[in-house]
Amino acid sequence: MIEIKDLHKSYKMGSNSLHVLKGINFSVEEGELVAIMGSSGSGKSTLLNILGMLDVLDEGSYTLDGVPIKDLNETKAAQYRNKFLGFVFQSFNLINYKSAMENVALPLYYQKVGRKERQEKALKYLEQVGLREWADHLPSELSGGQKQRVAIARAMAAEPKVLLADEPTGALDSTTSYEVMDLIQKINDAGNTILIVTHEPDIADMCKRIVHLKDGVIVEDKKITQVRASQYV
């Protein structure tokens, strides 16, 4: 599904250049649930941003579902993001003047799905995350866990190839974190490919594979036995 070869990325900070990713080789099969771990500054967020086409790579190659991702202009990148990727952020990033349903329907709007169909689909995904009766509420009327579940529903609404989650539980307490992880596991069980960036070991243990990043290189890449989040809920 994802194939990365010899990926380099550096940032210019004034006259210095900061080499963040120093040659990453990495691939993800369909249906995997991968945790990317590392201390802050290890380059895990940069990697996720490049995977999410929010940032461009300096060297190396990136292939997503057989499509080489290179030389993207903004329009093309937007189109690919919409078609291939779903994002879940640490700070939820819901649009605060739109209701839960409108938020979920947003990626479909960019796909030019008709109004009615959009609403039906949005309600279906809200139902899957257990928030159907909260469809008309604004984000400010939802709890943190609920917000993240709306965000997950929004990420799923466009039926992406890969779900990218950047610290999805970073702003939640542990009980809510496990609820969200339970949801993510269920989505993964349905066959979706998911990448999670986290620095919490217990969250990483709920994935099927852990990739450790340190100073811009992969130091460890192992498959693990998944801990089901449902046992904590």
Partner: peptide, 16 residues
């Protein structure tokens, strides 16, 4: 700005 960033992450065309 942030909202525009979210929209673009979700795949809104810059022209739009």
């Amino acid at each position: 700005t942030k909202e525009i960033g979210i929209r673009r992450a979700l795949g809104e065309n810059p022209w739009s």
